[in-house]
Amino acid sequence: MPDVSSQNQIHTLSTRNLMLNIDGRPLIDNISLELQPTGTSTILGYNGAGKSLLLRLLHGLIQPSKGEIRCNGERLSRSYRKKQAMVFQKPVLLRRSVIENVRFALRVRHRDDPDHARQMLQAVGLEKQALQPARLLSGGEQQRLALARALANDPEVLFLDEATSNLDPASLGWIEHRIQEISDGGTKVVMVTHDLAMAHRLSDEILFLDNGRLITQSSAQAFFSSTRNDKPEIVESFLTGRLPEPRLA
């Protein structure tokens, strides 16, 4: 388990006038935001809203067309990106054993430690599969391994891109429990999900995107509150499960 006591730092992630244009089309449209420094922030929205793109921009996997991303007041740099980690919807596992996948992430940071790797596996219930080929694990186990690998270097910010879609309840339980644990331990979690129930259970903050624009950013409590009726119409539609109006591409 990571030493959570050393992770209780403030991680302010913010964007200013963030734009991403592809073929002249704005896929991320002038987003300015500042995420809560701790806890779990969840990005919600319909398909094509730009959720995964925003996550990739925040992690520095893609460069914005305009605007900037700041971490603790400084522009997102390579050294800061090393303090971040990401788990993708489809886990990319190396053609190696389970434990070697975790040790690989440690070796990249020049801190190979088999005991630490084993602890990481233990935390996601994969210690018995340590020597098995990673790509032969079930989908849920592969996602747990991807999470263990992402956490191996004790990231300050963890991005999860629909990391729990298509998982069986047991694996979902493992991953949710682990996310809650690391979020409580001080790691900032930013995730994209389609699972409203999970977002409700884990989130401290919700960002709702539509058509590349940030529609609303609020506390999870306010977002899911049934008594408040000041929500934008599209958010109401989303929360009540109504289908969006078809749009021309």
């Binding site: 992690h59 993708f88 990319v92």
Partner: peptide, 16 residues
């Protein structure tokens, strides 16, 4: 192509 995003996420050098 399969690994690129993961490598980028780990901020790996070209030789790595």
């Amino acid at each position: 192509t399969e690994y690129r995003e993961q490598f980028e996420s780990l901020v790996m050098s070209h030789s790595q």
